[in-house]
Design a protein around this nucleic acid. Structure first.
Length: 225
DNA sequence: AGATGATCATCC
DNA sequence: GGATGATCATCT
């Protein structure tokens, strides 16, 4: 297991070292087997990259590079550089949320400083041949912060007022709430339409692709200056 | 085609 | 069950 990077420069150097490699090349240098597909290994790419960069935390509820305060997100993209999937942020609290403010929320905390690592990941490309892109650091600007806060407040208000059943993926412009569970039988406590306790599917916050696409575009336009 | 809702593996 | 890592697969 590699030691965690001590500085941001160290971290970025490690990113540079793996940029351009295929997942197969990186896996073999770490003596890891490449699964046939991601059907039963959906987190494989993220975990491979975490390992390569020396991320800590594992399944703990902390950012990946605790000393640097940086969260790592791999981002599957197509040839055109557009995200192929929404980006999971964190689980959503469904009870005891009255009085919770954006600034203190888990979403805000996680999105404070992200290391985005694009991976060319069109489904037609065999897993081992997918190419690691150029990682970049990102922090939300005030407009992005405000947009996310607005979505978050709308979603949290619905949750706290018993409107969770009315929330769907389309609720929220950039930040959405979707099921995040092992299967449809996993249930957790929430607030019903009459304010009564109910059991419902656990939910997670996700960044929609329109948001991550804008981040990539912003980064791209900066990098060709 | 793209997004929504559903699901998979693992660790504690 | 709930946290981590996400992508799959169906619907629109």
């Amino acid at each position: 297991m590699p030691t965690p990077p001590k500085t941001i420069e160290d971290l970025m150097a490690r990113c540079n070292a793996i940029a351009g490699l295929t997942l197969g090349q990186l896996a073999s240098s770490l003596e890891q087997a490449v699964p046939k597909n991601l059907l039963k290994d959906k987190g494989w790419v993220g975990q491979l990259i975490e390992h390569a960069l020396g991320a800590t935390g594992g399944s703990q509820a902390v950012v990946d590079f605790a000393d640097l305060g940086i969260e790592l997100k791999t981002l599957p993209i197509n040839q055109q550089g557009k995200p192929l999937e929404s980006t999971y942020v964190c689980v959503a609290p469904l009870t005891g949320v009255t009085g919770l403010e954006w600034q203190n929320s888990w979403v805000c905390e996680k999105l404070r400083h992200i290391l985005w690592l694009p991976v060319l990941a069109e489904r037609q490309i065999p897993l081992a041949e997918r190419v690691i892109g150029n990682a970049f650091l990102w922090q939300p600007n005030s407009a992005q912060q405000q947009a996310l806060q607005q979505d978050w407040e709308e979603l949290m208000e619905l949750i706290s007022l018993g409107g969770i059943a009315d929330i769907r993926g389309a609720t929220g412009k950039y930040l959405q709430l979707r099921p995040k569970a092992a299967n449809s039988k996993a249930l957790t406590d929430a607030i019903g339409s009459q304010g009564q306790p109910i059991r419902t599917l656990p939910r997670g916050f996700y960044l929609k692709t329109n948001f991550t696409a804008a981040i990539l575009q912003q980064q791209f336009s900066l990098s060709v200056e």
